[in-house]
Design a protein around this nucleic acid. Sequence first.
DNA 1: TTAAATGCAAACGCTTTGCAATTGA
DNA 2: TCAATTGCAAAGCGTTTGCATTTAA
Lengths: 141, 141
Amino acid sequence: MSCHEILRENGHRLTPQRMLVIEILHNAERHISAEEIYRQLHRRYPYANISTVYRTLELLKELDLVTEADFGEGRVRYHVAEKGHHHHLVCQSCGKIIDLEEPALHPLKDTLLREYGFAADLRHLAISGKCGECRKKKRKA
Amino acid sequence: MSCHEILRENGHRLTPQRMLVIEILHNAERHISAEEIYRQLHRRYPYANISTVYRTLELLKELDLVTEADFGEGRVRYHVAEKGHHHHLVCQSCGKIIDLEEPALHPLKDTLLREYGFAADLRHLAISGKCGECRKKKRKA
DNA sequence: TTAAATGCAAACGCTTTGCAATTGA
DNA sequence: TCAATTGCAAAGCGTTTGCATTTAA
């Protein structure tokens, strides 16, 4: 079922602003911030307002159509839930973001459930550290 | 070497404000926010200002005397580095924070290094999810 | 027709900053 | 003595909110 249908099903209106935000989210190659969504939206629909972006994102979150990820940048990033959940390695030196395969965190998830009774929600997980390249550079220096 | 000595060694002054912030951090039972530090500081030194708290925390971070942790609350929490690094499980339902034993994440750290060349910095890691109690409650309901 | 959604402007909470006054070494 | 540090007030940033206006259904 498409985002549009899900909105409708739940009694929400399909406004042009919402359709554009959804389209922008779908076209985004990476996790995208509210500000970036707004900039793209504004280009195509100059009257649009950033508060509408936030309200739309809030709604899409409630409907589990988008998820949030916090890369420790002081702002949150969004992406379409159906695109699947990547986990991320964020380099503290160069800012690069490495996508992590879904199964890489399965052992951790299992351990937490078994030993702590804790059902980890790893959908938005970002782990910071140093990437291979930056570590090489540092070794040389 | 104590925090006071390290500050001195690096050419920084030992002001009463800084000494109090350090003391408050050391006495804190859990990770503590800038606001909470300020409230305690203000009680003992009413002229103190919150910008001094932030500047002191910035300095202590640079000297690796404190670390930051982000529990997704929209504000960061601090704790004394020498107290060791706990990892945290944050319950999305009740907000409870469960401390995780240091070794619990070693396998993950090893995997990331081996397979991605990525040196994960897990000092501030907080994993969100649902704690055992809340899962029980939900099952009943 | 009408409740839902928008645009606008103002406020929010946390954090940072410029600057003159103070103070530790 | 004098650069480092502080307090203050103002601004900065991302986000949220109240309200009158517009609009999808």
